[in-house]
Each structure stands twice: as C-alpha cells, then as structure tokens.
Computed example of a mutant assay.
Amino acid sequence: MSMKIPFFKSKQPEKFNQASDEKVPDHIAIIMDGNGRWAQKRGMPRFLGHKEGVTAVMKIVKAASQLKVKTLTLYTFSTENWKRPKAEVDFILKLPKQFLHMYLPDLVYNNVRIGTIGDMEKLPDHVCEPLQYAVDRTKDNDGLQLNFALNYGGRDEILHAMKSMFQDMNDKSLSMDELDEQQFAKHLYTAGIPEPDLLIRTGGEKRLSNFLLWQLAYAELVFTDVLWPDFSEDEFLLAIKEYQQRQRRYGGI
C-alpha cells in the first residue's frame, strides 16, 4: 500500500521561515495571466500554456498552505473568457477536472477546503460535477480555503447580488432601512469569505479585469511581469514581502 506524501517535508525551507517572520495576508487573490503568451513565446499552441499553468497552481497552493494563508482565490475563467476561440475555451474548461483528478487526494490529505465563486449554472456538467464532488469531499477540512472563480465577473456578481437583495425586499425578509454594506455583501458569491488582503496579478498587465470589484476596495495590489506558468514559490514570496512593507490605513492616518 502506497503512503500519501504531505505537501512539504517536516522541516520547512528557510525561505518560508523568513516570510513567516511578519504578518502573512489571510486572503490572497490571484489573477493568473500570461498562459497563452508563455506558450507563444516558445512557439507552442496557446493551450499548452494553460496546461503548464495547472502545475503553477499546485505550486502556489502548496506554498500558501505552508505559509498558513487562510484563503486563496484564483481567477480561473471569467465571464469575458467566452469570447476566446471555442477550441481554447473547451480546453480551459477541461482543466478543472484534470486538476482535481491529479491533485484532489493530496488536497484532501493536506486539509485544503475547496470552494467556487461565479455563475456555475452556465457551465457544462463536466466542469460542475467534479468541482461539486471536490467541494463536498473537502467541506469538513479546516485548512487553506481554495476558491476557484469560474464563469466569474465582478459586474455580473454585483448585478446578481442586487437581484437577490431586491427579491428579499419583495419577500419582506429585508427592508430598505436594513440595507448597508454588510447586507449587500451577504448576497455576493463571496458571502462568508473575508475580503482579500492582497491581490497578485501576473503577466505584466495592471488592471483588475472585472475581478472582485467590490471585495478589492482596500486590498493591496502587486503586479509582476512574470507569466503565470513561470510564477514560482519565490515570486509568491516576493509579492508577500512587498505586501508586508505596505501600511494599510483604510482611509485613516
């Protein structure tokens, strides 16, 4: 009988100990950009960049778990990504099932809890069913919360929340006088999930691309030119180190 191997050896590498000297963000969100360009730079089809990006996902999940990050949210497929060529979209939408087939046993063993945010009803069954299985399989874990943002768009989420809130008002379960930021947040896809402390975007672009527009109001933003498949544990640590040097005032002094 084979023995399951934890993500990390019992003795942590020195570089992780150094990053742990100061406050590590509780919630890190990542826009994983640059897969297609990574492949094109190497004369390869774009889809191979997305495949290579899956390996980078697991590296960062492991690093986040070891650093005791509480929540990691990955921008996996946006509402705008449907505009890409059908063959590329079809390939991307096969990746969650492949990722879980390869790594779900390790995620379960290492106490990772899986979640999703976005309009899952518009995704095909071959995406939703394995993800729902993973959510159910890990629901009792209390380690790293790993969220996949799938068919997710910030504006779509806000509209969805407004419709849900108006329905509650029509049902008399919510009154106009009760409306505030906390009530609104309860109707978002991220209800119950703390807002990100740090957003990392790879690939050289410096924009949010419709990601967590409400939730990122006071997050620290770190942009890197490194393309996602090349985004290593060291790059992840550099982003966290930069976060640790920021002063978060939330509008105060």
Rank of each mutant, 00 (worst) to 15 (best):
V112P: 01
G204M: 07
K97A: 15
A219C: 07
H126S: 13
R113V: 02
H27Y: 08
T55N: 14
E233C: 10
A161I: 01
P105F: 01
L150W: 03
I5T: 14
V108Y: 06
F99Q: 02
E14Y: 11
E129I: 13
A191C: 10
K11Q: 13
S164M: 09
G34T: 02
V57G: 01
M169C: 12
N210M: 10
L221C: 12
G36C: 08
N147P: 00
R42V: 07
R246N: 11
I28D: 00
D136Y: 03
I158W: 01
W38F: 13
E235D: 15
C128P: 00
I31E: 00
F223Y: 15
I193E: 03
K186T: 10
S173C: 06
N81R: 07
D106T: 09
F184G: 03
D26E: 12
G118E: 04
E220F: 04
W228T: 03
A64C: 15
D234Y: 06
K11T: 14
L93I: 11
M120P: 05
K94Q: 15
M102T: 15
L237S: 09
K68H: 15
S2V: 12
W228Q: 07
T73K: 05
D90L: 10
Q244M: 05
E80D: 14
I92Q: 02
K163M: 02
M120Q: 13
A239H: 05
I5W: 09
M3A: 12
I158P: 01
L213N: 12
G251K: 09
Y243H: 08
W38H: 03
I92G: 04
A191I: 00
L95G: 08
F223T: 04
G53V: 04
R46K: 13
M58L: 12
R37P: 09
M1Q: 10
T73A: 07
D230C: 05
K11C: 10
I31F: 08
A39V: 04
K51Y: 09
M120S: 11
K70G: 08
V61Q: 01
E129C: 03
R137S: 08
V135I: 15
L179P: 00
S175H: 12
M58V: 02
G153I: 01
D106A: 12
K83G: 06
I5M: 13
I200A: 04
M102D: 14
L93Q: 06
Q18P: 00
E88L: 10
K186V: 00
E121K: 15
L100W: 04
D136C: 06
